[in-house]
Write a protein that binds this DNA or RNA. Structure first.
Ligand code: MN
Ligand code: MN
Ligand code: ZN
Ligand code: ZN
Lengths: 135, 135
DNA sequence: AAGTTGTTTAGAACAGTTCTAAAAACTGAA
DNA sequence: TTCAGTTTTTAGAACTGTTCTAAACAACTT
């Protein structure tokens, strides 16, 4: 058989999180298929559609824990709402306004040359490139 | 004489805004000196320190109007809070976490090559580069 | 199974921002 | 100048996204 279904229970345990029903359901939605960009509200709607009752607070808890565990990264592109990105590798984003859609593009084709050195007393943490486009 | 003090009344009128006491005071704080990055709360504290009573709603109104008029641009770098930037020309940002400070750097030294073409049916609107650094 | 600890939950609380509608201020014409 | 018409300001309510609280519940250990 091709494409063994990942063991979410083990993956959660590996990062020190108990594999509860809620977390496993959320992990499945997030990590089972292609990379995704979700909002808390959107993921909440999705998981509730599976008929497993999960509170919004739990979705926020899980997203924050997954992010802290390095399973997700948080992307800030619009005021007042966070996106969580299942792609934790180096890449950048298209942001389609006003829809609010995020699309990845690989960073290895993109060259950013001539970045100035960080201000005194600081270390580089990450470079985000957001290409904003409109319909 | 060198460095004529700008006529904020005229500048406001030029973009179709009545030069009220509040707007002139805010424009002075924003545009009189070097380029700035302000938050609504921060600017509100500043203007109130001049002993002119200005409500927070007015600060938000003015910032949004100035942005719509092209006098400011809005920068989103952190969840839950907008920065307004008096530098409307092409440039990019350092963002110092966790302080929340923003610093400009010119875009003309920075080369971004290999950006993919925008998704079907969209036009490029702006490219934001945010260099996140930590203390 | 019992005990322990970690998790979920509903709802309250919170932060940043926008809205409401009444009072105040700006403007152009008289 | 005064006046009428219009825009702006304001206090406070409302709203949105997110976090907190503390009690019920579920997962793990023995
Ligand atoms: Mn967060
Ligand atoms: Mn806004
Ligand atoms: Zn992404
Ligand atoms: Zn700037």
């Amino acid at each position: 058989m091709s494409g063994t279904s990942p063991d979410f229970t083990a993956r959660l345990r590996a990062v020190g999180l108990r594999p509860t029903r809620q977390r496993v359901a959320l992990a499945r939605l997030l990590f089972e298929g292609e990379h995704r960009h979700v909002t808390a509200e959107g993921l909440h709607a999705e998981v509730r559609a599976t008929r497993l009752p999960v509170s919004l607070a739990t979705v926020y808890n899980a997203l924050n824990q997954f992010r802290d565990a390095g399973l997700l990264r948080e992307v800030v592109v619009a005021p007042g709402r966070s996106y969580f990105d299942t792609n934790t590798g180096h890449h950048h984003h298209f942001f389609v306004e006003p829809d609010g859609e995020l699309h990845d593009f690989p960073s290895d084709k993109v060259t950013i040359a001539g970045l100035p050195t960080p201000p005194k007393g600081t270390r580089l943490s990450r470079v985000d490139v957001i290409v904003r486009v409109r319909r």
